[in-house]
Nucleic acid binder design. Structure first.
Lengths: 189, 189
DNA sequence: AAATCAAAGTGACAATTGTCCTTTAACAGG
DNA sequence: CCTGTTAAAGGACAATTGTCACTTTGATTT
């Protein structure tokens, strides 16, 4: 369990055993069953979660059309939360639910900041991680702006071959901003 | 000049005069005329730039279609570079050119990291800035996934009323992932 | 094995957006 | 004042994608 988190942090900032133990002591484990919600709209979001096991989806429920737009998946070695609500202490505008049974490690904003202040390595880890996240999001945005439905799907399969098998197409369509039917036709013609 | 940068950093991390002077001494001023390029595809990207004055666009030139896709504008108080190339020391995959005469402050990756190590406040500033950038990019992505051309344009005007007047519509269309003609029809019907 | 349910495929049609092309307007430089 | 350049508007048509309704498939439960 904790090994995954350790390797994840050490990919940026190598740690001593003591340092890691100290960091790890601030995380709280949480297990959730398939179909349950980690975060629901209007919740206050106390934690940011590291995914140890399972698969989740973060989505916006459009109250007008009743449709859901998935903007992120979370699997092993990824982080997931409503960042905006988490950082600003406001209510969630999104939902996060489990597509599989999940095992997570949560940390509060206060502890996150405390660790950053106490350990430069952790602050550095947060900084690098945020920058990596930014660049990968930017790549996704570029494809969303310029690519056709087909481009987007092919790129997704190339980038996440495992995920594209693990997740129902309906959800992938939503993630790509395309209707389920259109996606279906892309690989049957 | 330097006051803008100071206020920008201090919005996250208040500094003493000495600290700011030290930070500022690592930046190099650069002035560019309208229509010139700050970064061209295949350049090595030594600097990350803070915009003191002017307006720039970052875009991808699609070599197949010959079309350009703008994925970011840069104006006063924003940062601009090819982040991927800057962080990894690789060649630029994008272009950045000036829509107006520009005045910039550039910092190298080595100096950026050095400042982060020497001053926790600066590392913290980088971390917070990256997280803010991430959340704002995510909001943009959400609109790109779910919004119609009209939604996107209206949202853009709401969020950047000044920019929408300052920048030619052709560029705004490209930023929104919409053809110039489609955008033109949105506010004439 | 039968019943139930969720996911995926498909056909027909509508709506949105892109592409190509022509025209108009604004404006800078000689 | 003219001329060349750039931005913008708009018409006509094509391509892409969405929507709705229905069928098929496959998994799960009883």
């Amino acid at each position: 369990m904790s090994q995954l988190l350790r390797r994840h942090i050490e990919a940026v900032s190598p740690l001593t055993d003591e340092e890691f133990e100290y960091i790890f002591s601030h995380f709280k484990s949480r297990k959730l069953k398939k179909h349950t919600y980690l975060i629901q709209q209007d919740d206050y979001v106390k934690y940011e979660y590291f995914v140890v096991n399972g698969c989740l989806r973060a989505f916006i429920g459009d109250s007008n059309t009743g449709k859901e737009i998935i903007y992120q998946f979370g699997i092993e070695d990824w982080w997931i939360t409503d960042r905006d609500a988490f950082f600003h202490g406001t209510q969630a505008t999104i939902n996060v639910s489990c597509l599989e049974d999940c095992e997570l490690l949560g940390i509060t904003l206060a502890d996150r900041q405390k660790l950053g202040k106490e350990l430069w390595k952790y602050e550095h880890f947060l900084q690098v991680k945020a920058n990596l996240g930014y660049t990968s999001l930017l790549k996704r945005l570029q494809i969303m702006i310029s690519g056709s439905a087909k481009d987007r799907y092919e790129q997704f399969v190339r980038q996440y071959p495992q995920l594209s098998k693990r997740i129902p197409k309906t959800y992938i369509a939503s993630y790509l901003g395309v209707s389920r039917e259109t996606l279906s036709r892309l690989y049957n013609s």
